[in-house]
C-alpha cells in the first residue's frame, strides 16, 4: 500500500504543483494584464460577430498574433500583452493556412470586400482555398429597403435574385473590421523580449520590409494591400471595386489626385458611370512618402498604364496640404 501511495500520490502531488506553476499561476497573473493604450472592448454587434468567428472555427486557419519577426511585418506591429485584455476566449490560433487577422480591419477595411469574400473567397482571390460561407447570406428577389446587396461578380452570383448578408454575416464583418491594431509605443512586445528582435521601423508605420528596386517594392505593397480589391491584374471587380488599368486618374499627367486618393481615401465616387459604394481606405497613416510614391508609381506603370511618375517629395507636398476637398 505504501508503494502505491508513494508512486501515485507522489507523482500526483508533484504534478499538481507543476500544473499550478505553469498553468494556473501564470494564467492568473496574466489575466490581470491591463488593456494597452487605445485597446477598446467590442461593441455588442462586434462581440456577436466574434461568436460567429468562434463557432465556425475561423481560428483553425487564421492566427491573431503578430510575432516580432520580419516576415510578420506585413500583418502589423508585433502583438503586445495589452492587446488581448478584452479577448476571451483568446483567438491567437496555431496555424496560418490563411493570413493573420490581427489588423485585417485596416488591410481589408471594406465591408463590401468582406461580404463578397465570405460569400465566395474565389470571387476576389482566385487562388484562395478558404471555404465559402453561403449560409451566412440570403438570396432574395429584391433587397429590402436599407439593405445593400453584396455586389457578387457574375461568375459567382446566383442565377436569380440578389445576395444579402444575414445578421450573422453583418456581425462577423463588424467584428473583422474592428480588428485594427492601435498604434503603440515601441518596445511593447512580450515582456522581457530582447529589444534587438526586429520591430517595425522606428516610426511605427512601415508595414513592409523595404528592399529591392522601387517598382518591385511598389508591386509588393500593391499585392499586399491593394490587390484584394483592385486585383493583381488591375481590373478591379465590376460594380464593386474600380479598375486601375486604364483608369483616368492613374493615367493623368497630374498625379495630385492619385496621391490624394491613396493618402486620404475616397468614397461614393462615380467612375465611368458606375457609382462605387465601398469606401477606399486612407493609407497615409500606414505608409511613409517613399512607400506611397513606390506604390503609386507601380500603379501608374503596370497593366499598360502610362501616368507620369511621382516622387516622395510630391507625396509629401500633398500630405502637407491635408485632406481639404
Amino acid at each position: 500500500m505504501n508503494k502505491l501511495v508513494a508512486i501515485a500520490g507522489g507523482s500526483l502531488a508533484i504534478y499538481i504543483v507543476l500544473a499550478l506553476m505553469m498553468g494556473v499561476i501564470p494564467g492568473w497573473q496574466l489575466s490581470q494584464t491591463p488593456p494597452g493604450p487605445g485597446v477598446k472592448p467590442l461593441t455588442p454587434l462586434q462581440a456577436e460577430g466574434r461568436e460567429v468567428y468562434v463557432a465556425n472555427g475561423c481560428s483553425y486557419c487564421h492566427t491573431q498574433q503578430v510575432r516580432p519577426l520580419p516576415q510578420d511585418q506585413v500583418f502589423g506591429r508585433p502583438s503586445a500583452p495589452g492587446d488581448f485584455a478584452y479577448q476571451t476566449p483568446e483567438l491567437l490560433g496555431s496555424e496560418r493556412t490563411g493570413p493573420d487577422l490581427t489588423d485585417v480591419g485596416v488591410r481589408r477595411g471594406s465591408d463590401v470586400w468582406q461580404y463578397i469574400h465570405l460569400y465566395n473567397p474565389r470571387a476576389v482571390e482566385p487562388a484562395s482555398i478558404m471555404p465559402s460561407f453561403p449560409f451566412l447570406f440570403e438570396i432574395v428577389d429584391r433587397a429590402p429597403p436599407g439593405v445593400a446587396p453584396a455586389p457578387i461578380p457574375k461568375a459567382y452570383a446566383p442565377a436569380h435574385g440578389v445576395v444579402i448578408p444575414t445578421r450573422r454575416a453583418q456581425a462577423l464583418v463588424a467584428y473583422l473590421l474592428s480588428l485594427k491594431q492601435p498604434p503603440q509605443p515601441a518596445q511593447q512586445t512580450a515582456a522581457g523580449a530582447p529589444s534587438a528582435t526586429p520591430t517595425p521601423a522606428a516610426a511605427g508605420t512601415a508595414r513592409t520590409p523595404v528592399a529591392g528596386a522601387p517598382l518591385a517594392r511598389g508591386k509588393q505593397l500593391f499585392e499586399t494591400n491593394c490587390a484584394a480589391c483592385h486585383q493583381s491584374n488591375g481590373r478591379g471587380l465590376p460594380g464593386a471595386f474600380p479598375a486601375l488599368a486604364g483608369n483616368a486618374v492613374a493615367n493623368a499627367a497630374d498625379a495630385t489626385e492619385h496621391i490624394h486618393i491613396v493618402l486620404f481615401g475616397l468614397q461614393g465616387k462615380t467612375i465611368d458611370g458606375v457609382k462605387y459604394a465601398s469606401p477606399m481606405p486612407a493609407w497615409g497613416a500606414q505608409f511613409d512618402d517613399r512607400q506611397i510614391a513606390d506604390l503609386i508609381n507601380y500603379e501608374r506603370s503596370a497593366w499598360g498604364n502610362h501616368g507620369a511618375p511621382v516622387t516622395a517629395a510630391e507625396v509629401a507636398k500633398v500630405r502637407a496640404a491635408g485632406n481639404g476637398k
Binding site: 505553469m22 496574466l30 489575466s31 490581470q32 476571451t88
Partner: peptide, 15 residues
C-alpha cells in the same frame, strides 16, 4: 478564474 485574455493563452499552452 485565471483564463482571461493573455492569461488564457498561458493556460492554452499548458493545456
Amino acid at each position: 478564474w485565471y483564463q482571461y485574455g493573455l492569461g488564457q493563452v498561458a493556460v492554452s499552452g499548458y493545456f
